[in-house]
Design a protein around this nucleic acid. Structure first.
Lengths: 345, 345
DNA sequence: GTCAAAACTTGTCGCGCGTAAAGATTTATT
DNA sequence: AATAAATCTTTACGCGCGACAAGTTTTGAC
């Protein structure tokens, strides 16, 4: 009757060891003798026993839960990043709990409070750019290690993200070499990237002694990027078109909207002579390579962003560094992006 | 010094009430007098106190955690479904914990065990179609309510999903009325939908006295649908092309791959006279309307799937039904899909 | 003002496990 | 074989809160 194995007490009786020994095993399998470990592992396999998560984390100096907050749960960029972090966390014996702020400051605040009530060991956050929550985040950051990704909270907190200056220099440089200079199609002001990227575009243009040309579109601060870009592009194309025949978008999802609108109005997108418009993006979303035409863009290295964010966090948690988790020199990491030359520009 | 408010003990002293009263409030705000409630709510707002989740759930007959398992965390269909369920769960005072099996049976098993160790109140699962795990899932189902979505586990467990027969009848009927009859491009065999949809296509064709034409492609059982469809389509188009000029895909992501491959080889997709190929999908992914051409497909009602799955679950949990949660008659719910006529077919 | 019901307080137990101390047993070293 | 070192067992406490019992105060109806 192994059905009765519900508690560690039951389980320790089942394996024929004392509960403290079994407890030690679950906290660190290497803290018990090899033979003991094998006995326990066999019993685990046979019974399927796992310690109750709530009991484990109630009376622990530090829980084994990591809190992850992303601003949008349906954006493949964030889900891919999250998946990477979840994998690393699990390998290190942590459980990653993912909450989405869904673009709303209230939900971001709720998520923070949920994590506080869970006493998470640490947190990785892709913040909204909302001024009012810096305070709450910083306060939480006083008690537990927090790493920001994608978009920085401020100028000092630990951060891992893409170097927008480098990435826009790269794509602007390519576009100007291969055709006329790009105008810039922004993204909704959902976080600081919206502003940073526009700046980065302007700087890149100026460094080439070119006049930045930013398309002024009002976009609501929601995450339906494709729709707002699509609607705006329809308007623009009907009213004389873009100022140049090359459009650089703040991110791929914006580019999807632009390309779809152009297609609908019969404006051919691509780098061929028969094309009326070149469109480039930023991020390299999973679907970008399957667009028609395949989207020329710069790839954010989300694998590396996830890995480094996790490495920074584990370092702060005092975890033993595996050799694979080589720690970067400082806590503000800007990764270079890689240009993906495809057919759209 | 409100800094010292860490436990409910601290908090109850802060508000000037006893701890059991405060505890009652957190379990059901309506169980205390209105005046008391207001005092507590003001103090909560001021101090930001939330009961420790682990302590709360350790000593409770039933936790307030719902376990959700999806097979792929980067597929917008599942993330949209998940978001819907999360929202409903939160409204009902539950915390939704989402784990992805990432297409791997081992991870699905791990997820089940994690939820077991969390003693979740109930679970909503989009299962892999792996025979070997039915047993584990059914065993877990003996102790807690479980609802299956997207793809059924068996023929008897509670299930909410789309009626593939109806949806394929719909799209096959449209395609045959508006052009030649479609051949069928399957999806990788990742779950039972892969088989069910092929069957549904065949039945729909036969009901129109047409010969089903299924394209035989070997696809690995992973979730990189676009890639496998893209590669296979390149092969097909180079070797004589599709058997008909209309291709019905098992889902939109497969259609993305087909369309991208056609574009790359200069085969024009669409319903115009100048087009060589019509392509239709299934699911209505968020990006489908922004494809070039916009994808004709059938829309799965993921909002309704999420709502009904949650309603079924809450019913089994004995939650008071809000009027908005009208319970369906039985536990096997097949929703009708809606056809989305766009430009690709 | 009286009295019962409702709502509160005080006190206590236990959820399942981490953790520590002290003693018993096994293993490794010489 | 003797001894130290490593590993185990036994025992006990407490994490923060839910739950319950018994006693006390407040509320509302008459």
């Amino acid at each position: 009757m192994k059905k009765t194995i519900r508690t560690m007490e039951d389980f320790s009786a089942f394996v024929g060891l004392s509960r403290p020994t079994v407890s030690k095993y679950f906290n660190d399998p290497n803290s018990v003798r090899k033979k003991t470990r094998e006995i326990i592992e066999a019993a685990v396999k046979q019974s399927g026993f796992r310690p109750n998560i709530f009991a484990v984390n109630l009376n622990r100096r530090r829980t084994n839960i990591l809190g992850i907050i992303i601003p949008n749960s349906t954006d493949p960029f964030y889900t891919a990043l999250t998946r990477r972090i979840e994998g690393i966390a699990e390998q290190a014996g942590y459980l990653a709990f993912v909450l989405s702020s869904d673009g709303k400051p209230e939900l971001e605040e709720r998520a923070i409070e949920t994590f506080k009530s869970m006493n998470v060991a640490g947190s990785i956050i892709a913040p909204l750019g909302v001024q009012s929550h810096q305070e709450k985040l910083l306060k939480l950051g006083e008690s537990i290690p927090m790493i920001y990704v994608d978009s920085p909270l401020d100028t000092v907190s630990p951060f891992v993200g893409t170097n927008n200056r480098q990435s826009f220099q790269l794509i602007v440089d390519y576009l100007t070499r291969s055709g006329d200079a790009p105008c810039y199609f922004g993204m909704p002001p959902v976080n600081s990237n919206a502003f940073e990227r526009r700046e980065a575009y302007s700087e890149a243009m100026e460094s080439l002694s070119l006049e930045p040309r930013i398309i002024e579109v009002e976009q609501a601060a929601d995450w339906d990027f494709e729709k707002s870009a699509f609607d705006a592009t329809i308007q623009i194309l009907r009213n004389g078109g873009f100022p140049t025949k090359t459009v650089l978008c703040a991110n791929d999802r914006v580019a999807f909207g632009v390309i779809a609108a152009a297609f609908q109005l019969g404006v051919k997108v691509g780098r061929g002579d028969d094309c009326a418009l070149r469109v480039a993006g930023h991020d390299d979303q999973p679907l970008s390579r399957y667009m028609c035409p395949p989207l020329t863009t710069v790839a954010q290295n989300y694998n590396e962003i996830g890995r480094l964010a996790a490495a920074l966090l584990f370092h702060k948690l005092g975890e033993h560094q595996d050799s694979k988790f080589e720690l970067p020199a400082n806590e503000r990491i800007l990764l270079n992006a890689e240009i993906m030359l495809r057919m759209s520009a």
